[in-house]
Amino acid sequence: MDFPVYQPDNSERAISLRRHRDALAISGAAVIAFSIWDMIKVFIELFLGEETLSSMVATVIEAIDVTDPEDMKYVPLIAWVTTVTILLLACAAIFFYHFIIGISAYRAGRQTAGKKNRLYLVLTVLILAVSLFFYTPNILHFFPRDEETDQIGLATLLVELTSIANYLFLLYSAYRIHQLEREALS
């Protein structure tokens, strides 16, 4: 009996293409995962950490001086609502940005994207530039080891470096896929 057996194209180029597509999909999933973990960490730190949200709001309330004691009742409520709203909006925006990159890279890697999309690569370059801009001082500050540098700093640094490496991996994989596909056509 003849079974329809899947015959994969195992040429050098096809193997390389499969590898890079898989890497692209994993990088995309990792972008989303890192983003979610960052959000969780921000919220845990704000509610349970040393510099909590309540102390931040307290400084804000102190900064506003209201002459009328009758109005003073509403100030804490308004301050809280505004702070939490701004925080949630900022988190949602940052997560959405990462989510677009992640889901586009994942779809491109798994070849389930409807049409060719290059926007996420531009977004990745942008976020890479921003991360490098913000993290380079951190990294430079960390490496001449002071006594103050603790394990938390090390862990944060590790995650930062991994996420920067992740963006680079993503761009490299996308570039290689582009190159290989063009070779296949010609």
């Binding site: 995962a33 973990w37 845990i44 862990a155 590790l158 991994t162």
Partner: peptide, 13 residues
């Protein structure tokens, strides 16, 4: 690699 980095961070955190 990503799983390792996340686990390590979660542990230290």
């Amino acid at each position: 690699l990503f799983r390792g980095a996340l686990f390590l961070d979660f542990g230290l955190f």
